[in-house]
Nucleic acid binder design. Structure first.
Lengths: 350, 350
DNA sequence: CTGTTAGCGCTTTCAC
DNA sequence: GTGAAAGCGCTAACAG
């Protein structure tokens, strides 16, 4: 019924082995023979059986990409960039590798489940994107999994995620969230702000913690008290930003600035401020993080920290494919760039 | 070296077949035996070999999702929704299926290549999202591929894409782009607009054509001449929207409204108008399409046509898994909903 | 309910 | 440069 390698071999009058060699192109085959095989493939409309190849060769053309939420451009951009680098020559059969995108939704269990599933698929590589959940048990479990993946020959790359234990052999491209957070708040302090609200992401997330620490570093460095009431935690979405801002305003109506954990949250904050009759930045300044594409179109345009998501993803993809040198120590820190735009200004009283 | 099913069987003192049955859970196995097997699996830290299973069972746990650009929320939202429905019970081994996301970048060749790659993987299902390229040769090639996939047992679903030839057996969930386009322009006409610019997407795309046709339908229905100079084609991105708007304004400075092919383009249009010193909607109204999450945060909020991307994706996912009834005739048309917001208003002179 | 027996379709030494 | 043969690790009849 379905055409197999043997059928092609028969029609081309060669052995199955030769067909395999032609198809994988990693072996010397006489030009005339190759011709004949290729024609037979075409005539029979033959398509290689991926699972069979993978089984026999003990490798697959799949690359796993773990993301929190593929609908979020933060992850979409990285995933797209990774994808764009995993194709091309270097692998088996045509050199095309497929990206298996796994939405963890930020759930540790799903993360582990997907890692196992990718292990089961004998994935050629796995890229974990975005912050990690901070939980010793989970971190240990992930590290163990990564170690096993590595042992099985799966290359592991962390993109926008803190390094894993060194013995996991996972390469890490880490965002300097702390540094970015500090710089952002320093910009605000420089403008004269002293009463700033901070909308943090979900607790138990490295990204959340690092950005918040950066914010606090800046406060401390400038002798500004870190009032606990000025920090609110929430999800990384617009709604959370909206609600957190209302709450922050309720607690302290004369806040002069709101720093959000990311751009999406900042957009929600902007909406809340507008709905509260406050002008940005005249009454309250707003800042985000990430510099997602839409941030420049906010009105006023959002001051934020640009993360080179596409570059980082592309680099992670190349490293995953062994096409780029691993950074020294397996760790590279990627800095963000402060983008000062219209949403931040001198505070009202100043 | 690597532990296999046989190792587990040996340790659990059962036959390999039994282990397989326990792991796949589609077969009656005595509770005590299952216990023993599961313990052995745990002890040995065994992970099933996906390719081997797929080969033996002639099916795989992979579901392909073709998108133009995963970094674009339009596709990200659909992909995420599809993903969320393909897991769970119903399939093999744990019931988890993996989503293989393929970025075609709108290229017909890549689309075909990915389809072949998915065929090679013996994907359980394939979902093609977004508009199709309008090109007879390519359409034929795709139809042929879809037919082959179908014959090989891969379920094919089109999500947000026009139906394929009936003999492909592909289920289509189609967006009513034409109807949405018409409704949007009728809203503008109702407000009093007569000189409207239209920023269309790339030519040779069904989405582009249908939305534009809807726009023209509305013009015609109201006796408004369809000036060719008022339509500009460009990519589906912000930059294209910006440039097209500048061009439109150059051609006809007293335009009272700009209709964009989608929200992203509309954002670019807004930026161009602002940079040109024009107020929205006082001087020029702007409308988009899709109602992506950020559209409500534009200032003023964008009038647009909401497409139920997540619902459509979820439904496509369920159909792909055989968990939802196929719509009559294999085709369902999904309507958009006009969202009137601040970016459109009565034209200046009125 | 469980074991036995054949392969699934391909890759890959090892010879020639 | 090409062929023969031995599996890769698992599933699925078919018995029992």
């Amino acid at each position: 019924m379905t055409v197999t390698l043997a059928d092609v071999a028969a029609r081309a009058q060669v052995s199955p082995a030769t067909v395999s060699r032609v198809l994988n192109g990693n072996y010397p085959v006489a030009a005339s023979t190759r011709e004949r095989v290729l024609r037979a493939v075409d005539d029979l409309d033959y398509v290689l059986n991926g699972p069979a190849s993978a089984l026999a060769a003990a490798t697959s053309d799949l690359v796993g990409i773990l993301v929190n939420d593929i609908a979020d451009p933060f992850f979409g951009i990285m995933a797209g960039a990774i994808q764009s680098e995993i194709g091309g020559p270097g692998g088996r059969a045509g050199g095309e590798r497929l990206a298996v995108v796994c939405n963890t939704g930020g759930s540790p269990e799903r993360e582990l489940t997907y890692l196992t599933l990718l292990q089961r698929q004998r994935a050629a590589a796995v890229v974990l994107t975005g912050g990690a959940v901070e939980n010793t048990a989970h971190a240990t479990a992930v590290a163990t999994k990564l170690r096993k993946l590595g042992e099985a020959g799966t290359r592991v790359v962390l993109c926008g995620r803190p390094p894993a234990p060194a013995d996991t052999d996972a390469v890490a491209l880490t965002f300097d969230n702390r540094g970015g957070g500090r710089e952002l708040t320093e910009h605000l302090i420089g403008l004269g702000h002293r009463r700033m609200g901070y909308i943090a992401g979900p607790e138990e997330r490295t990204t959340t913690r690092h950005r918040l620490e950066g914010h606090r570093d800046a406060l401390t460095a400038h002798g500004i008290a870190d009032e606990p009431a000025r920090t609110v935690h929430g999800r990384y979405d617009r709604r959370a930003g909206y609600e957190a801002t209302i709450e922050l305003l309720r607690r302290e109506p004369d806040l002069t600035a709101v720093v959000a954990a990311n751009d999406t949250v900042a957009l929600g904050a902007c909406a809340a401020l507008r709905d509260s009759g406050l002008r940005i930045p005249d009454d309250v300044s707003v800042a985000g993080f990430d510099d997602l594409p839409f941030s420049i179109d906010a009105v006023p345009a959002l001051t934020t920290v640009r993360l080179p998501l596409a570059d980082a993803g592309a680099r992670a993809g190349r490293i995953a494919m062994g096409r780029e040198e691993v950074p020294p120590g397996g760790i590279a820190t990627i800095r963000g760039e402060l983008m000062v735009r219209g949403s931040t200004g001198v505070p009202k009283g100043a």
